[in-house]
Amino acid sequence: MVENRPWLTVMSHAVLIAGIAVIAFPLYVTFVASTLTLDQILQVPMPLVPGDRLWENYSRALTAGASGAAAAPVGRMMLNSLVMAVAIALGKIAISLIASFAIVYFRFPLRNFFFWMIFVTLMLPVEVRIIPTYKVVSDLGMLNSYVGLTLPLIASATATFLFRQFFLTIPEELAEASRIDGAGPMRFFLDVVLPLSKTSMAALFVIQFIYGWNQYLWPLLVTTDESMYTVVIGIKRMILGGDALTEWNVVMATAMLALLPPAAVVVLMQKWFVKGLVETEK
């Protein structure tokens, strides 16, 4: 520190603690609500200390879901979310890795054209081409399937950029040495480029896992069958019209279940997460 100002340090801590408390408050209330009975939640104001229904609420949510028209077990939804998140993350990494390898390590006609083609997809987020994309997926018979949920989302300009930037920093001598030793391009890719890319892949995996898990609009359109719902859209379907009709205790348990996996990934893999976040925005 530049100078010693004790009161300023105290204030910094106070501001940070207040900020964290405000930010964590919605999460705390959600957690408390997920441990109460519905009657306890409906009495205004609801208690702010956890109740004793944690086990009942969570097991109800996982095995049966909230009662009502769209009741479906959240356990199945969590599985769908997991499949979607992992497939999108791995798919994006795989196709971006080989595409940027081709763009960096080869000279061929139309190279720049392909590069720009990938680049402009940045400008076409799914939200602006909702209906035509839905039509394409429906024409291909991919509604209510894992392929339909994941394939349209795995093209990624950001991942391709990230790997391209990284490959450009690999010393030329490595490629030279491999060529002198008689290694072909794929041998070089597998034995040199891939091991070097491990950290970039891990960072990207964390970011894309969260991206995949948290998708909302796309699964909302593509899945009509309850057994294919992801947990994020499952919550929305559990909330019925009036406040009193909704089984808030089960909904809140589901909300906790929906946010814990990605939050755990962020907190436990913090180093990769920060690296991925900063690098994908370069």
Partner: peptide, 16 residues
Amino acid sequence: LLIWPYAVAPAVAGVL
């Protein structure tokens, strides 16, 4: 303690 809300889906944030 400040970075975890990034992991919460927008739809879930809305529900909270």
